[in-house]
Amino acid sequence: MARSSSGIIVATLTAAALAAVGFLAVQAEAAPDHPTAHASGRAAGKAKDGEQGKDKAAGSAGQEQGKAPNAVPEDSGTGLRVVYGLAQKRVWLVGSDGKATRTFEIAPSTVNPPPGSYAVTSRTPTITGSDGTPVEHVVVFHRDAAGVVFGFSAAVDGSSPKPDPAKKTGAIREQPADGRAMWEFAVNKTPVVVVP
């Protein structure tokens, strides 16, 4: 009798241990650090984060219908071109595939070029800017009827201009690294599109 009750106890304990192991296996499968559950949870989290990112982008000032703030402006032409957004004070270097290879903020001078399509007309490696600052990588794309020259350049010392409102100048100042990128990208006759 003692042997049979001891066998029953052992059998009961074995069954309980197997049930506990089975329960723990089910719990482990559903745990967030389990590779399968974690991967699917991460994918779902990324999708949710992406939706939240779109919502944030849509709510940001100056953005339209969830567009990224640095997206190439619509109605700025097609193909390889430089796009200059007057209101955004930003330039996009756009490849032939229509995608920006680089975008950066600029510091405009006292006069803006009218929105429209232009082309690079001249390039000068170094010169003294209209504000008396030594500049490099000068890329000119327009001269208006009053003789104001519009072009991109970078101050050798990296400074931003402090335009004198009494002077009508069309210099568009870039940071040195952006000026180098513009210089390499915008060879003579490269289209330049100015948008509002």
Rank of each mutant, 00 (worst) to 15 (best):
residue 82 V to E: 08
residue 117 S to G: 07
residue 108 P to T: 04
residue 100 A to I: 05
residue 82 V to L: 15
residue 117 S to T: 15
residue 105 E to P: 07
residue 85 G to N: 13
residue 103 T to N: 09
residue 100 A to S: 15
residue 115 P to W: 03
residue 107 A to N: 03
residue 89 K to C: 01
residue 80 L to Q: 15
residue 102 R to K: 12
residue 118 Y to E: 09
residue 106 I to R: 00
residue 108 P to S: 03
residue 103 T to M: 05
residue 103 T to H: 12
residue 117 S to W: 05
residue 111 V to S: 01
residue 103 T to I: 03
residue 96 S to E: 13
residue 116 G to E: 07
residue 87 A to C: 03
residue 106 I to C: 08
residue 107 A to W: 01
residue 82 V to G: 06
residue 105 E to I: 05
residue 95 G to S: 08
residue 114 P to F: 02
residue 107 A to P: 01
residue 104 F to V: 03
residue 114 P to M: 09
residue 95 G to F: 01
residue 104 F to C: 00
residue 86 L to K: 15
residue 88 Q to D: 12
residue 108 P to C: 00
residue 89 K to S: 12
residue 93 L to D: 00
residue 81 R to I: 14
residue 102 R to V: 02
residue 108 P to R: 03
residue 83 V to C: 10
residue 80 L to E: 13
residue 111 V to L: 03
residue 114 P to T: 10
residue 95 G to Y: 03
residue 118 Y to Q: 08
residue 80 L to N: 09
residue 90 R to N: 09
residue 87 A to H: 13
residue 99 K to I: 04
residue 83 V to D: 11
residue 111 V to R: 11
residue 106 I to V: 15
residue 102 R to W: 14
residue 83 V to M: 11
residue 109 S to E: 00
residue 116 G to N: 06
residue 97 D to V: 09
residue 102 R to Q: 08
residue 107 A to I: 02
residue 109 S to W: 05
residue 98 G to E: 02
residue 114 P to Y: 03
residue 95 G to E: 08
residue 88 Q to T: 03
residue 110 T to D: 06
residue 100 A to D: 03
residue 87 A to W: 10
residue 102 R to S: 11
residue 95 G to C: 05
residue 101 T to V: 15
residue 117 S to E: 12
residue 110 T to Y: 04
residue 85 G to A: 15
residue 113 P to T: 10
residue 94 V to H: 04
residue 94 V to W: 06
residue 86 L to R: 15
residue 91 V to K: 02
residue 80 L to I: 08
residue 101 T to I: 14
residue 85 G to W: 01
residue 96 S to N: 13
residue 93 L to M: 11
residue 106 I to S: 00
residue 107 A to D: 07
residue 110 T to K: 04
residue 87 A to I: 11
residue 96 S to M: 07
residue 114 P to D: 09
residue 100 A to N: 09
